[in-house]
Design a protein around this nucleic acid. Sequence first.
DNA 1: CAGAACATGTAACCGGTTACATGATTTT
DNA 2: AAAATCATGTAACCGGTTACATGTTCTG
Lengths: 178, 178
Amino acid sequence: MSLRIALLGALAANGPLSGYDLAKNFDGSLSYVWPARHSQIYPELAKLAADGLATVREDGGRGRKVYEIAEDGRAALAKWLTGTEPSRGIRSEASLRMFLLPLLDPAQAVPLLRREAERYAEQVRELEQVRDHHRPPTAPGRNGWYALDLGIRQLAAIRDWAAATADHIAELTSSGPG
Amino acid sequence: MSLRIALLGALAANGPLSGYDLAKNFDGSLSYVWPARHSQIYPELAKLAADGLATVREDGGRGRKVYEIAEDGRAALAKWLTGTEPSRGIRSEASLRMFLLPLLDPAQAVPLLRREAERYAEQVRELEQVRDHHRPPTAPGRNGWYALDLGIRQLAAIRDWAAATADHIAELTSSGPG
DNA sequence: CAGAACATGTAACCGGTTACATGATTTT
DNA sequence: AAAATCATGTAACCGGTTACATGTTCTG
């Protein structure tokens, strides 16, 4: 279900798009919460068209097909956003690692946590540049600025946790068993 | 691979456990980043034992089997934590919804964002109580406090984003097209 | 004209979910 | 003795990944 919604969302936000465009980066931000490969995207777009939620049009000689969201598609998207409870579960290998890092002995855990903190800090800096380059929207509607902002905040949370946890463990071990 | 690691992590952190125990809540916190059902856990534990990463012992007459992490298991866990790059991808239906909510017209989006902000605020308050009840560890090693702290920070980030975005959209529409 | 990038699809496999199935102990 | 809970497992299905397969247009 969710892939379908993600595609409708991308089409609603970024106008008519081909499967190739969508596969490339899913609008550059959607892939952060719902990644998908072209092998999954192409069949799903075909289904979307078959179900009348999007319209297809051949575009140029290279076999390119451009999909545009239909009225039924917008309705389905709005219904999902307003009328259903999303599953709160997530599955994140990176977070799993964070959860488990404190199990290592402090001499290993602290530098790894600091390295992770720095990695996330760097990613946050990069994305902040992109975000601030685009500037917040001055009119409501279709744009990825909010999505990017959310991504940055989540990464910053992990960064802060990793730094704080490294400090905490380091402090414990310097005073504790010494 | 990750389920295997998650199970080893749970066994390392919380001592010997049965599949039933693990399935119940995955230590109460691990399930937040890597949920799993008993139908997946039981076979994986059997494999873990077959591969020598954990040891089994029958425990009581109800067919209960208790698994304990073996030395090889600890080594495998440590190797994964220190020697591999985790995939950075996540898949979150809740975040997907957040990403897409600003696509709705402001009259719908703003109250939904505020409702989500309140939902996350409540969850943060609940988990903060749990966390602060347990208090931060005073000795390094096996405990779920850090994991819980990470979960709270991530939820708080979403909460803050939802509130800020609601405010921002509301402000735009009150001054913008009026 | 060769190689890169564009563009779409299919098939095999794997991890995960839902549902099915069974039996032992404890509680009421 | 019935119901609830403990406890483990299997099977069918589905969503997603990897790999395979094919053809077109642009660039150097």
